[in-house]
Amino acid sequence: MKLHFLGVRGSTPAPGAEFTRWGGHTSCVAVLPDGLSAPPLVLDAGTGIRNLAPAPFRGVIALSHLHWDHVQGLPFSRAVDHPEASLELVVPGPEPLELLTRAFSPPHFPIEPQGLRGAVSVTSSGGSRNEESFVLRQAEVTHKGGITVGTRVECDGVAVVYLPDHAPQLGSSAAEELCRGADLIVHDGQFLPEEQALADDYGHATITDAVAFAERCGVARLLLTHHAPNRTDDQLDAVAKEWPDVVFAREGDTVTV
């Protein structure tokens, strides 16, 4: 399984010369099982989904939650808004189409989700589902501001858990269960240890929270994403040097699990 990081920022995009090396787009990861030329699964649809290959996307887009930085790229991706696209949007919460449409409709936006070109269906997340090339399992995790799910992807004999917005320090037994036996955790690492109060206030994790969580789960490989939008390239370079045993997601990178 390969993970292609299309967007690695949290909260808001970070444009400008100070953010080009690590990338300024918000959360989006394309999942490519072995033997496939196009990803059948995309995790989140932040502005990074604009970087998805321009061919029509056919597959599942699983949203962790409905905060702007995880959905705002949907109508701006040529692969998604395409006459030949065929996609299932998996949305946390009951009545998922109604939830998504609250922010994805006039006066907030010119069209509703089903105004996207191509075939679009919207379903509710949770539980397990077996697709042709992967297994998807989701569970609600701790994060402020609405229902948020963690996502476990299994294919090619490995398992990855995607937790881009997660506050393990607030107690997260469902997330720990989701991570059991995983090969890699892709986790929220937006805040530094000295920013713990901010992390708690916004329902996010510090790097130390994420490291402790991975240790509790017995998962050796940890990759941090959802970088703070005000954290410049130079600052992220310095943070990464302080934590040599942790991988920091970089926009455009492909990670093999």
Rank of each mutant, 00 (worst) to 15 (best):
R9Y: 06
R9V: 10
P13H: 07
F19E: 04
G23W: 03
V29E: 03
A30G: 01
A30E: 09
L32M: 13
P33I: 13
G35N: 12
P39E: 15
G46N: 10
G46M: 04
T47V: 09
I49V: 15
I49E: 08
I49Y: 06
N51R: 15
G59S: 15
I61Q: 06
H65Q: 11
L66A: 06
Q72T: 12
S77A: 15
S86V: 12
E88G: 03
L89M: 02
V91N: 02
P94K: 12
E95V: 05
L99D: 08
L100M: 10
R102Y: 08
R102M: 14
A103M: 14
A103R: 14
P106S: 02
P106F: 12
P107D: 09
L116V: 13
G118Q: 03
G118D: 05
V120W: 14
G127F: 11
E132W: 04
S133F: 15
V135G: 07
V135D: 11
A139G: 04
G146D: 09
V149R: 06
T151E: 05
T151Y: 09
E154S: 09
C155H: 13
P164W: 06
E176C: 02
R180V: 05
D183W: 11
D183F: 05
L184S: 02
Q190G: 06
A199V: 03
H204V: 05
A205V: 01
V211Y: 09
E215V: 07
R221F: 12
L224Y: 10
N230D: 14
R231W: 12
D234I: 10
L236E: 02
L236C: 02
A238S: 15
K241Y: 10
D253I: 13
D253V: 10
V255D: 04
